[in-house]
Amino acid sequence: MLFLSNKNHIAGTGQKNSRILLAALALVVCAAGRQTIAYADTGTIQNQLSQTQQEVNKLFQLMDQSGIPDTQKQQLEIDIKKKIITDVIAVSEAQVDAVREEIQQAPFPKTADWQKVADGFNAILDADEHYYQTITDTLSTNPGITNDDIRSIASAMEERKTNIIDPDIKHIETVLATFNVKSILDIADARETKVGTDVDKIYSKNLTQNQSLKTAYQQASSLIADAHRANEEAQSITLNMYADQNDSSTQDFMKNLGKEIAQWEASSTPATDTSATSTPNTGTAPDASTTIQMPTTPQIRAYVESLVVQSLSDIQSAYAIFMQMSQNVKKYL
């Protein structure tokens, strides 16, 4: 939970709990959105944490003073918790703004289909901002708010951030990453062409009969081609995610995607020990004609992310081969 529930414990150990509460603030901001935090202005986050530290310390100092009635201490405790929630929201809104700016700067192709994707992303962020604004309004316009109310708000906000907001933003960032991968692939293509030219020179001039250079080049070229296919598939899936789901071509695409995801999930899941059962687990996908259903949004998002990761891995492997080849190429040219 974001807050400690024992008010006497809070009142009795002010400075210790100040650190705990500030750590909780940082945890809520960073826990489920490590990639998200990278998009936000680190200076803004640090300034917000510092400001929270100072203001919470002042409230704890007041609580620790003797002679303050219990009712006033309870109100100070509520004020501390409201302050922390408010600052969590401020940092979260900064993250949303940063991701929105990334969307605006992304090199989306100037097509109606990609505009639907951008509009879909902005609609997601609009919903996040509306949610945070609703909480802010509740805290600022409800003078009779209680500790129980705040605990409920904090719990609901943490659950929504973990289960909805952070996965949404991670999905957006994954799709935006496909454009970065495309830029990297452009560089990889140029490197592949340069290496290919050198390899052709070596064999056309009969500088060696050893086929290892040619084999290595073919392996690297194949990896780059695979990286292109994976990244292009990730973008194609994204376009269909935000297309008209009632369109027959989109439905056919999603059905085929469901089969592909089922096979991917089966191949990604280790086979379990089935010696005690009558039906062994072969680690392969079940009969698609009887079990394949339309894929869920979390399944599609996970698959798209796996494609982006695979594309980057293939590029890295190709460059490792190019690096190994470069030493041998220098011997001949």
Rank of each mutant, 00 (worst) to 15 (best):
V199P: 03
Q209N: 15
S249A: 13
L257Q: 04
N240F: 13
L207R: 13
S248I: 14
S222L: 05
T282E: 10
D200G: 02
T277S: 08
A243T: 06
R191V: 11
S236M: 13
T215F: 01
P270D: 00
T284C: 00
P280H: 07
T250F: 02
I224F: 10
H228V: 03
D189H: 12
Y203I: 11
E260I: 06
S222M: 06
D247M: 03
D200S: 14
A276G: 15
I224C: 01
S275H: 07
S221V: 06
A216F: 11
S221E: 09
K259A: 10
K259V: 13
Q209Y: 05
Q219K: 10
T279Q: 10
D200T: 13
S236F: 01
T215S: 09
T193A: 13
N246R: 06
T284H: 08
A271E: 06
T215M: 09
D247H: 05
Q209D: 13
L185I: 11
A243I: 04
A243Q: 04
T274K: 07
K201H: 08
E233T: 12
E192D: 15
G196T: 12
K205L: 12
G196K: 05
Y203F: 13
Q251M: 12
S204P: 00
D189T: 14
E265A: 14
G258F: 04
I237P: 06
K201L: 06
L213N: 02
Q209F: 03
D198C: 00
I237L: 12
N281A: 06
I202C: 00
H228A: 08
A230H: 10
D247I: 02
N240H: 15
W264S: 08
N206R: 09
V195F: 12
T250A: 00
A188Q: 05
R191A: 06
H228W: 09
D200V: 05
Q211R: 11
S249L: 05
D273H: 05
N281W: 01
A190L: 09
V199N: 01
K214F: 04
Q219N: 10
K255L: 11
N281C: 00
E232K: 13
E260S: 12
S249V: 09
Q211V: 02
Q235H: 14
L185Y: 09
I261K: 13
S248N: 11
N210W: 04
N210E: 11
A188G: 07
N206D: 10
T284L: 12
Q263Y: 02
A262T: 10
Q245W: 10
G283K: 00
T277A: 07
T193M: 08
T282Y: 08
T238R: 03
G283L: 02
D273R: 01
N206H: 13
N256L: 09
S236V: 07
T269Q: 11
D287H: 05
N240E: 15
E192N: 15
D189A: 14
Q211H: 11
N281R: 01
A266Q: 08
D186V: 03
K201M: 06
T197H: 09
S278N: 05
W264I: 10
D226G: 03
N240A: 14
G258W: 01
E260T: 15
D247V: 03
S248F: 13
A227L: 05
D273V: 05
L213S: 11
W264F: 15
D247A: 06
Q218I: 08
S204C: 01
